[in-house]
Design a protein around this nucleic acid. Structure first.
Lengths: 142, 142
DNA sequence: ATAGGAGCTACAGCGACTGTAGCTTCAAGG
DNA sequence: CCTTGAAGCTACAGTCGCTGTAGCTCCTAT
């Protein structure tokens, strides 16, 4: 039996975040003490650890919902989990590619900046004039 | 003189986004027609293009505010812009490093997944047991 | 004169939390 | 047994950067 604080501490989660996960249905509503405080079982700890780990790997809460559902039904086929993981990998690869393009552009801007007045600043100039860029960056959704 | 729609079209921005930038003080309040519609000058187009370009490079609106301020005062020293750009570069590098670690972990999970029942799924297993991971991923803030 | 596309304001919603206010409860020490 | 202070409770607002909606009004081409 853990208090919410103990659960949070053991998983590196904030107490509010634990309550939030309960609110959005990722964690079950736990038993309560007579005074209304939450009391958790070891299984809840495992579930929260799973959620946190998946979050660290960048999975969205809705993807985590699907993964938890699979984990809750061990007899089911795991291809759903595979699909979700592959989708996440593609997303991560897309973001890396985009960030690498940004990194190149930023490095170029900074390398060319010689200091001095803002009027002659390479950084500002590049921002003003898109044609100086190597790539077209795509939309700002990281 | 551009309508808000023309301005939006020329910069690849949504009309609502233009109004939002005005609301948060990134774009000035433009003149209005007798009927209350916004009418923009070419300078506003430049300013919006600057904002969009900086957004594509991943700068936050508050960083963009600082950059615009420098751009508005050409006599000032440009070292502020350099500092902001370097900060952004560090942030981008940090994100790339993190995403590369995630990519490795995801690839490993997927590679080891042989299909079959969810009970034996490598993907789910890795998520359940953090000790199977090579890195500790850090916190989920991308 | 009319039609319909464009613009207007105001506000809600997204995702995934995080912080705050104003309480109540729990557990350890005296 | 009582006190004290940390921890927990609910409810709600705020974060960031938009995006979408409802219900209007305006502008312009025919």
């Amino acid at each position: 039996m853990y208090s919410i604080g103990a659960l949070a501490r053991q998983t590196g989660t904030k107490v509010q975040t634990v309550r939030y996960y309960e609110q959005v249905g990722l964690l079950p509503q736990p038993d309560r003490t007579a005074g209304g405080q939450r009391r958790y079982q070891p299984a809840d700890l495992d579930r929260l650890a799973f959620i946190r780990h998946a979050r660290q790997l960048g999975f969205s809460l809705s993807a985590i919902r699907e993964l938890l559902d699979l984990s809750d039904h061990p007899a089911r086929d795991c291809s759903g989990a595979d699909t979700i993981a592959r989708r996440q990998l593609r997303e991560v690869e897309r973001r890396i590619a985009r960030l690498e393009a940004l990194r190149a552009e930023l490095r170029r801007m900074i390398r060319d900046c010689q200091g001095g007045a803002a009027a002659d600043c390479r950084v500002l100039e590049v921002l003003r004039d898109h044609s100086e860029c190597l790539t077209d960056h795509g939309d700002p959704a990281d």
